[in-house]
Structure formats: structure tokens, C-alpha cells
Design a protein around this nucleic acid. Sequence first.
RNA 1: GGCUACGUAGCUCAGUUGGUUAGAGCGCAGCACUCAUAAUGCUGAUGUCGGUAGUUCGAAUCUACCCGUAGCCA
Length: 674
Amino acid sequence: MTAQRSILVTSALPYANGPIHIGHLVEYIQTDIWARFQRMRGHRCYYVCADDAHGTPIMLRARQEGIDPETLIARVAEAHRADFRDFRISFDNYYSTHSPENQRFARLIYERNRDGGHIVRRTIRQAYDPVEKMFLPDRFIKGTCPKCGAEDQYGDNCEVCGASYSPAELKNPRSVVSGAVPEERESDHYFFRLRDFEDALRAWTRSGSLQPEVAHKLEEWFAAGLQEWDISRDAPYFGFEIPDHPGKYFYVWLDAPIGYMASFQNLCDRTPGLVFEDFWGLDAEAEIYHFIGKDIIYFHALFWPAMLQGAGFRTPSAVYAHGFLTVDGQKMSKSRGTFIQARTYLDHLNPEYLRYYFAAKLGPGVEDIDLNLEDFSRRVNADLVGKVVNIASRCAGFLTKRFEGELSPQLAEPALFAAFVQAGEAIAAAYEGRAFSRAVREIMALADRANQYIDEQAPWIVAKDPAQSERLQGICSLGINLFRVLMGYLRPILPATAEAAEQFLQIPPLTWDDLPNPLLAHRIAPFRPLMTRVDPKKIEAMLQAAKADLAATAPQAKKPAREPIAPEISYEDFAKLDLRIVRILEAEAVEGADRLLRLQVDLGDETRTVLAGIRAAYDPKDLVGKLTVLVANLAPRKMRFGVSEGMILAAGSGGRELFLLEPDAGAKPGMRVR
RNA sequence: GGCUACGUAGCUCAGUUGGUUAGAGCGCAGCACUCAUAAUGCUGAUGUCGGUAGUUCGAAUCUACCCGUAGCCA
């Protein structure tokens, strides 16, 4: 056995302005499995996390709800804790970045870096909302993309063409907060000189602290040259005030990772024998691992180790990034109902299913994983219920009925049991290397062997011969022992099922070192189903609920009230309208008119000129050739720019919200519409 | 647009340093069994290994370009 290790693991801090969703859970489940594995191996492993409680979005959200930020983050923290508890995420401490410990560490790290000359002050120009009297983060400015002209894009990059730019380049910029046109204003900011740490970071990067693909990514950043990092924000801001500069606050990303330390400090303060310095001190022997999503590598692999180093703390042993979750091959989508909150899942399905499914797909790399809901239920049902739990189920009945639950004093087939034990090394190595999918594959291969054994031995036939009673007991006892080893291997993934199995087996919590010792002449409890099958109806119900949740939690999506229906008319009134199919032959903007397009339309045997107020919604060249509907008997109307001989039909509120009517295929110019 | 990854059977994934007929599980078909939560066992079918071009005696594996997907661009 290897020596006992002291390990601190963290997951990234969830932001305290919204609920946990199943995408978040990939990371918490991954980290939790790893932490539980380490503990099961007999190591001292602490797992801490916290809510990331600062920043502009939280400030604005609280304001919008008419409450203090403190009230908001307390409410969100409670929901987060409940979600994690129910998914059996085994945090040793779940804290908040809005805490005295975090403030103390943030100051300390700032001051030490400042005193070391790593912080500089500079004046920058930044977008300012004159109505709200606040500087605007890039994400709080929207406008037209300077590259492709797409409307309603954020201040930092365009989701349509993928271009990145600065908010100043955005056309028609608007503050998302007030709708005002942002102005540029000057402000003093503090910058962290990342470049001071370049050599150390390069060395750290190469020391095996990062996955190879992440290290490659860092090479790119080094090559591009490390830039200074803006670590301050102006009031109003929800966060920690910078000690030597009232009215300036630490940027949320400065104090977020420090939250790992603060949470751990808080744990140390109430855990006898747990010493902060043993983990974070410069010469600490303990290991520290951060599990993060691939989107925040920059902060954890560059800023964080640099800040720590500048402040005289040790750097993390490693940072492990994982990919994102897609649902049925697509990004989680609110409209498709695949944006599933943790709570919504819990309301319908067993968390062990998701823990297993994620484990079965998680590798050590940064690839995205897909939650394919068909595959999800098939896989859980086949592997866990059909294979693993079934082993216990098919042996236990004989033991209970015939032997009062008593297991044989010897193993019927020691070689088979030994093979199961021997596989443990490879499985442990897979867990250690975060290759959970490999571990699961190996475990399921063992489960197949156990089922094969039972089939070969056919205890149901042996049971018919009273003279072979001992043999029957031996077969079933071995089956139970194989099941016990399998549950031991699965324990980090399936804590609740493992506990139920331990109760069934009447044993204390399984440890890795225990596994080679079989249960002999031991009495087990009557079998009760340890896990039930995934019910597809529940998945369907969950998806429905996910859609409903979003409708409920999206008050911003102000639904325009439907325009009231006009007063009733008779058929005769309707019949007075002569609606005709026309083909648009030409379209051009009307000089001097902001809204008008001049269209030449073909009515079958005549051509008419129509002036239509659809310029904001349609590009003239896109209209040519289209079929649409014309009110053909409308009195011609004289306008400043000419005479309009009819009106074409469009739906919508006006401006860009206009949608031309188009007939189904087969309609021809001149046809009357009834 | 640049960069880092990913793209292998209907689905989810393995494929070690390029080396004989490309694998597993699920699903599907057939058979067997009936102890078990319609669970299990055996047998079988299924792939131009994203595309194109190259390097090589030999490429899923190496190179270039292209297409698609994700993230990052502080």
C-alpha cells in the first residue's frame, strides 16, 4: 500500500445568480467521484467549494428584484447546497466568496503582489452608462456587429460571425441596463503584471500540472505575449473594496479562485488537526487539484498560479479541465427543453443514474460529453440493473430461502474471485487518472463474467437436488462476493447504491483495501431492489418540466400582448377585398424615404408599382422573384415619392419585425386569394 | 479569422510506438434458459474509421488542405 496522501480538491465556484443545471453537474460529479475514490483508498482528501458571489450581474440581478445582493446570494446558496446534497456531492465545505476569510486572503494576495511590484495603475477608457451612472462590462453592451452587421450582439464578440472586437467598435451600442447610448469615460484601474511570472508559468506548465492539450493551448498564449490583467472595477460594484483605494473594487475573477483558500481556511478553523499551511504553505507536501471547465483555463492556468506565486503561496499540483455537456448532440437549449436544472432532474429521476452515465463517458481529456437521453436510459438499465444489481438479485433468493442468508465458509472458485480482485489495480489506475469511462468499462466486463459464471453453474438446476445443497450455497455465495467487489469498485460513482448494498450485505462501508477479503460464513439481509429501472415517462416528464421552468423563470422575455381582434365583419365585407398573388419583379430603396421600398409587381397580365414600408425588414435584392399577396382593389394612394397602386400583405409590429406573406408552392401571379 | 481539441458500426465509445480479416457494450436477428427488477447466456449481421490529396512495402493511426462540432482569443 502506498503512503497516505493529503489532498485538497476543488470544483469551480458556481456563480450565485442562477440555479445549478446538469451542465454544471458534469464537473461536480467528476470531482466528487475522484474525491470519493481517494477517500476510499485511505487518503486524506478534502473537497471544498463555494458560491462565486460577486460582480456586476449579481448586483444588477439583486437590484432588479429589489433586494440586497446579500439576500440574493443567501437565497441562491441555499438552493445550490440543496442541489449538491441531493446529488451526493461530498463537499467537506461549501462556502461563499462573500466571506471574511475571502476578504482577508484577497487583500493579502493583493498587497503582497503590490508590494512585490506586480500591480500597476493606469488610466483606461471604458464604456459608461450615463443613466445608471456606472461603467459597463462588455457583456452589458449590445449593438450591431461591425464585421457582419448582425443586430443585437454583445460588446465583445459576435455570435453570428464569431468576430471578436472591442465595445467601441460596435455600431449603435446600447447599455443593456438602461438602454442609453454608452459614453467613453476615463477611469484609473489596477493591473496585474502577468508577464513578471512568465518563466515560472512556463516551468509550471511543463511540470505535468496540465493536460497535454491544455499545455498546447498555453503555448499559444505565451507566444502571443502575456498581457496585463485588469483586476479592478469601479463603484457601483458588489465585491471587496480595494484597501488603498476606496471606490475601487476587486474584479470578481480576482477573488473567485481565492475562494478555494477561504473555503478551506473556514474548514480548518473548525476541524481539529487540519492546518491551512500544510496545504497552502510554500513547502506544503499536500496535493492541491482544481477541477474546472475548459472555458476558464486562462484564469486557472495563468492568473491563479501567478497570483499565488506573487503572494508567497504554493501553486496547485494540477489543474484538470473537462469539456462541456451537450444534450442529444446539441448545446443545451432553453427552447428545446434541454436546459435542465439540477432540481428539475431530481424531481423526476434518481441522481445515481446521472452520476453513472457521466462516469461512463468521462475521460481525462477536455472533450465535450453528450447526454443522449435514449442512450442514458438504455445504458443505465442494461449496465446497472441488468448486469450488476441483477447478480445479487439472482443469488440472494436461494441464500435467503435455503440458508437463512448464510454465506459459505469457503469460496467455491477462488480463481474467479482472485481475478476480480486483481482487476482492481487497473480500475484504481483509471480512477486516479480520471479515466472514469475506462474504469466503468472494466467493471462492466467483470459484471459480464459474473453473470456468465452463474449461467454456467445454473444454481436453479442445482437447487432441485437436495444432495447438492452445499454446492448451491457455494455458487450463490461466490456470486454475492463477486457482487460485493463490483459494488466496491462502483462505490465512488454510486454512493447511495453502495450504501444500500452494504446494508444488504450487512457490512461496514467498503474500502479499497477490504475488497480482497471475501465474506465467508457471513449472514446477509434479504434482498431488496437496490435500483429500479429508468422510466422513459419520467424522462419525458422531466423535459416537459424543464420547459415549464423556463417559462416561469424568464420574466425578462417580455411577451408583447397580442393585438386585440378587430370588430366582426360580414362575409360581404370580406368579399369586397380583392387579394391577388403577385410576383415581385423589381425592388429598390426609395431615395429620401427611410422606410419605403419601391416594388414592381407582376399581377399576371399587368405590372404595378407598390410603395411598401418594409425597408427595415428586407433587403431589396432578397425580394426579387418572391411571390406575395397584393390588395389589388385598394384605391391608389398618392405619396410624396409617387403613387402606390395597392398594398402587399405582411405580418408583424413594424420596423424590423415584419414578415411578408408568401403563398405555398404552385400559386401563380394573378390568382385571387379567397 | 487565429489557436486547441474532437469527427470510428443505428446509439455510446475502445483502438497502445503506422503492421495481417477494425473491436466492445447497447440496440437488432436467431437460439437457449427461467434463479433474477421482461433480467441472463450463446450465435450472427452491420462500418469507403468526416472528405480529398500525399508520405510509406503498409495509414483509422503520420502530413497538407477542406467540411462539421466545441471552447478560447484575457
